[in-house]
Simulated assay, not measured.
Amino acid sequence: MTQNNIGLKIALIQTELFWEDPIANRAMFTSKIEQIREAVDIIVLPEMFTSGFTMSPDNLKEEEGILTLTWMKQMASKYNTAIVGSTVFKEDSFNYNRLFFIKPNGETFAYDKKHTFTLAGEHVKFTAGSLRLIVDYKGFKICPLICYDLRFPVWSRNTENFDILIYAANWPAPRINAWDTLLKARAIENMVYCIGVNRIGTDKIGHNYPGHTSCYNPQGGLMEISKKEEILIVEISKNEIDGLRTKLPFLEDRDQFNLIG
């Protein structure tokens, strides 16, 4: 990035997951993060990165959510980077698919998945959230969401002039065309960088995940995509966002509405 251009370097970790084994997954992601040889501003992990997309949250010990949150804070501090990802989190006898955005200084933001995946019964096992999260970080406004939220453009709509959409996901192979198409659409319609981090491999109940972790620029151009186990590094530019929105002020003509949950 040029000296007068604000930028972010973001690491996207695409990997298989150990089924319902938070200890093994935390150890695996610790190793993955250690492999990142350059300074990055954000590390993004998949949805339910400590368990896989389980609909049996009671198979996980209640304290695992807190242990994972503590681990994320430790990683953010040690590597001086923000960490983003969702995990099974139990609170007041309710289960949540909760995404955390942890800044390097330990400042913590949380988002509970709004659109629980009814096809898998997630709405029965997990309590849905009702509030969207926007995080200010290093000159960027970031909206982190979770998997199925991608299918709902109103929930993803850029009403706050944010710069980046991030989706942490476990998105299966039969619907991967929708994943690719919707990530690109969310980038174009919101004039943002749109990042989707998926897992790979086959889980214990037979669902296959083909990856397609990717990043699209504010015009819908594909910057990076992966179909294998790897860590992608993407660089994004605030100047590109601001320049595009000045040249093409489409967001000024957006429909006015309020999100009420």
Rank of each mutant, 00 (worst) to 15 (best):
I233N: 12
D203V: 04
G65Q: 06
P57W: 04
K103D: 07
G121E: 00
D58E: 14
L150S: 03
Q74K: 14
V44C: 15
Y148S: 07
M75V: 10
I236N: 04
F140I: 08
Q3I: 10
F257S: 10
D163A: 14
L222R: 01
K90R: 15
E235K: 12
F29L: 00
E235T: 12
S130D: 14
M72E: 08
M55V: 09
M191N: 13
F18P: 08
L8N: 13
S93G: 03
W179S: 06
P172I: 02
T87S: 06
V84N: 13
D242A: 11
D255N: 10
T30D: 09
C147F: 01
K247F: 06
F29D: 00
G261R: 05
K90P: 12
G261I: 04
D112H: 15
A110I: 12
F49G: 04
D203I: 02
K9P: 09
C143H: 07
S214M: 15
Y111H: 11
K138Q: 15
E189L: 07
P46H: 00
D58F: 06
L8K: 07
I102K: 00
T108G: 03
V154K: 14
T54K: 04
N4I: 10
E20R: 11
M191L: 11
P22V: 01
A11M: 02
K73C: 03
E62D: 13
D253K: 13
P172G: 01
A185K: 15
N258L: 06
I66E: 14
R199A: 07
Y216Q: 06
F162I: 06
Q3H: 10
T54M: 06
I13E: 02
G65E: 05
T246M: 09
T54N: 04
R175A: 12
I166P: 12
Y137G: 15
F117V: 03
G196I: 02
F126P: 03
K138E: 14
F89W: 08
I205R: 14
A110F: 03
G129Q: 00
N239K: 13
R175F: 09
N177C: 12
H207E: 07
W179A: 11
R199E: 08
V88F: 05
V192M: 09
G121Q: 01
G129I: 02
T30E: 12
K90M: 14
N161S: 06
N25M: 09
E38G: 07
N158I: 01
